[in-house]
Simulated scan of single mutants.
Amino acid sequence: MSTPRSSTVDPALVDFTALARWMDDQGLPPGDFTEVTELTGGTQNVMLRLRRGDQVYVLRRRRLHAHAIGLLTQARSLI
């Protein structure tokens, strides 16, 4: 499984082959990723809406590069 052609999402954010394998291992319905869009609004995480087969999912993951606000929040939690 490769990155969806219709995706406007940076392919470095998600290994779609590994994600499909994991979804298969969880017993989720199979299919190709046909729609992948980034949901906006978050500052610390990336949220993607994706369609696989007849199902729609939301994937949440941390950003590739630490965000300054997230670093500050983490620092506060250590004090």
Rank of each mutant, 00 (worst) to 15 (best):
residue 60 R to N: 04
residue 44 Q to V: 15
residue 53 G to E: 08
residue 24 D to S: 13
residue 60 R to T: 06
residue 23 M to R: 03
residue 40 T to V: 12
residue 8 T to W: 01
residue 37 T to V: 14
residue 6 S to C: 11
residue 9 V to N: 01
residue 69 I to H: 10
residue 2 S to T: 13
residue 36 V to N: 00
residue 76 R to T: 10
residue 58 V to A: 10
residue 35 E to C: 09
residue 79 I to S: 15
residue 19 L to T: 02
residue 70 G to I: 01
residue 70 G to S: 08
residue 16 F to S: 00
residue 59 L to N: 02
residue 29 P to Y: 08
residue 75 A to R: 07
residue 55 Q to C: 14
residue 3 T to H: 14
residue 43 T to M: 10
residue 54 D to H: 13
residue 32 D to V: 04
residue 21 R to Q: 13
residue 70 G to R: 01
residue 77 S to G: 12
residue 35 E to L: 14
residue 73 T to P: 02
residue 26 Q to K: 14
residue 31 G to D: 05
residue 61 R to K: 12
residue 51 R to V: 09
residue 13 L to Y: 03
residue 73 T to K: 14
residue 30 P to L: 05
residue 73 T to E: 15
residue 13 L to E: 02
residue 70 G to A: 12
residue 24 D to F: 06
residue 48 L to S: 00
residue 77 S to K: 13
residue 5 R to N: 15
residue 66 A to L: 11
residue 51 R to M: 06
residue 74 Q to D: 11
residue 9 V to T: 05
residue 55 Q to T: 11
residue 51 R to F: 06
residue 66 A to G: 12
residue 74 Q to P: 03
residue 54 D to F: 12
residue 28 L to R: 06
residue 11 P to E: 04
residue 55 Q to N: 14
residue 4 P to Q: 05
residue 32 D to F: 07
residue 59 L to T: 02
residue 9 V to A: 02
residue 37 T to Q: 07
residue 49 R to D: 02
residue 25 D to G: 11
residue 78 L to Y: 13
residue 23 M to S: 04
residue 21 R to M: 12
residue 18 A to M: 13
residue 64 L to T: 10
residue 59 L to E: 02
residue 50 L to P: 00
residue 70 G to T: 06
residue 42 G to C: 11
residue 23 M to E: 06
residue 29 P to K: 13
residue 24 D to W: 08
residue 38 E to V: 02
residue 35 E to Y: 14
residue 41 G to V: 02
residue 74 Q to K: 11
residue 74 Q to M: 10
residue 68 A to Y: 08
residue 13 L to N: 03
residue 70 G to D: 07
residue 18 A to I: 09
residue 51 R to W: 10
residue 53 G to H: 07
residue 7 S to W: 01
residue 34 T to F: 09
residue 15 D to E: 10
residue 10 D to R: 05
residue 34 T to H: 06
residue 50 L to W: 00
residue 55 Q to D: 15
residue 39 L to R: 11
residue 65 H to N: 15
residue 63 R to Q: 07
residue 40 T to Q: 13
residue 54 D to M: 11
residue 54 D to P: 06
residue 61 R to T: 04
residue 16 F to C: 03
residue 2 S to D: 14
residue 47 M to Q: 05
residue 27 G to T: 06
residue 32 D to A: 11
residue 72 L to K: 12
residue 48 L to K: 00
residue 24 D to L: 09
residue 67 H to M: 10
residue 69 I to T: 15
residue 30 P to C: 07
residue 31 G to A: 07
residue 64 L to Y: 04
residue 46 V to A: 01
residue 79 I to L: 15
residue 76 R to P: 03
residue 55 Q to I: 11
residue 29 P to C: 08
residue 15 D to R: 02
residue 38 E to D: 05
residue 76 R to K: 15
residue 59 L to F: 03
residue 12 A to L: 07
residue 7 S to P: 03
residue 32 D to M: 07
residue 79 I to E: 14
residue 26 Q to V: 08
residue 26 Q to H: 13
residue 45 N to M: 08
residue 43 T to E: 08
residue 37 T to E: 04
residue 74 Q to A: 12
residue 42 G to H: 11
residue 73 T to F: 13
residue 23 M to Y: 03
residue 34 T to R: 08
residue 46 V to D: 00
